[in-house]
Amino acid sequence: MDIDIFNNRLSPKYKILDPNEADKILLRFKCSRSNLPKIKTTDPAVIALKANEGDILEITRASKSAGEAIYYRVVIR
């Protein structure tokens, strides 16, 4: 049975950044991919998105203090 894991109120919004956007993020935070939080290729969300190693995901989560909070994660093996 296929379940859409994003169709759940607890599941945050994911987006794969294109290389251009990804570079912008790295520049904005003055860091390299290795300094970002990581997410495994085996993570259900990564599988569902068909993201590849090295991709940067933009994750928009609900936040108690700010309403919405944006996090970035780099996909690792």
Partner: peptide, 15 residues
């Protein structure tokens, strides 16, 4: 950050 490793992108999410 811890060193240059990012832990949270905005302190307390609201800064």
């Amino acid at each position: 950050r811890e060193g240059n490793k990012i832990i949270q992108f905005m302190y307390g999410e609201d800064g």
